[in-house]
Amino acid sequence: MPLSDDRAVVSIMNENAEFFELRIHAEDGELIYYKQTTKPLNTYQKIFDFKNLENGNYTMDLRIKDTRLLKDFSVSAKGITVGESKLRIDPYFAFADGILKLSYLNFDQEQLNLNIYDEKGLVYETSLGKDFNIASGYDLSALNEGKYEVVISSLKNNFLFSLVK
């Protein structure tokens, strides 16, 4: 990634052409750069000039479908320092025959919570824990017909699944 003390190159290569989103944000969440493709691409390359960035910690976040690649980097008077890549995959949700199934690989082993909302508010909440592999099923057959939002949340992430019963 570093090209010089204040410039870096980001190269994305994918076997199949896909839509993607690329974000760079500061540690406080401020968005520094955003790119969303308008057509599927196999490759993308951009040189970033970080000389005007304040010293601090940043994250590059590449999303293709339900997969994210995160790379932390820091900018200081000494230049750019790049951390290891972290692969993250969104949770899997399925709803059929009144049963909600979910699974999630909790790479960061964050404390996760599950909340289910109807149009009036919260109808169910539970802790999913912080195990690496989260896999659960919930019998929602007793719920009234209608629209529901299922949210898996941690301090850093929120994942949303909508269902109609």
Rank of each mutant, 00 (worst) to 15 (best):
L70H: 03
F95K: 04
T59N: 11
N57K: 12
F93Q: 07
R63H: 00
V75T: 01
S74F: 11
D66E: 09
M60S: 07
G98F: 10
G56N: 08
S85D: 13
N52M: 15
Q111I: 13
Q45P: 06
A77T: 15
V75N: 02
F50T: 03
L41A: 04
N55L: 07
G79A: 03
E84K: 13
Q109C: 08
D90S: 15
D90T: 10
E110V: 08
P91M: 14
A77G: 09
K46W: 10
G83W: 02
L62P: 01
N55W: 08
K78W: 12
K86E: 05
D90K: 14
V82S: 01
N113D: 14
F48G: 01
V82G: 03
V75P: 02
E84V: 11
L69A: 05
S76D: 05
I89F: 13
K101V: 00
S103D: 11
N113P: 07
L100C: 04
R63K: 11
N106I: 00
F107A: 12
I47F: 03
A94M: 15
E84H: 15
M60Q: 07
Y58R: 02
L70P: 01
F50I: 03
R88Y: 12
R68I: 04
F48N: 03
L53V: 04
K71D: 00
D61F: 06
K46Q: 07
A77M: 14
T81C: 04
F95T: 05
S103I: 09
I80D: 02
V82E: 01
Q45I: 13
N55M: 08
E110P: 13
I99G: 06
M60D: 00
F73N: 01
N52P: 00
D66T: 09
K101N: 06
N55T: 14
L87S: 11
L87K: 10
K71T: 10
N113T: 08
F107N: 11
A96W: 06
G79W: 00
R63D: 01
Q109V: 07
S74R: 06
K71E: 07
R88E: 14
E110I: 08
K46N: 08
D90Y: 13
P91A: 15
K65W: 15
Q45Y: 12
L70R: 02
L102D: 03
G56D: 11
N55R: 09
K86V: 03
D61R: 05
V82Q: 01
F48E: 02
G98W: 12
K51S: 01
R68S: 13
S103G: 08
L112M: 12
I80L: 00
Q109T: 10
V82I: 02
D61T: 06
F107W: 07
I99M: 12
G83C: 08
T67C: 12
N57C: 10
Y44N: 05
N55D: 09
I64K: 06
Y44L: 06
K78Y: 12
K101D: 00
G56F: 06
R63A: 05
F73M: 00
L100D: 00
D90G: 14
E54I: 10
S74Q: 10
D66C: 09
E110S: 14
D90N: 15
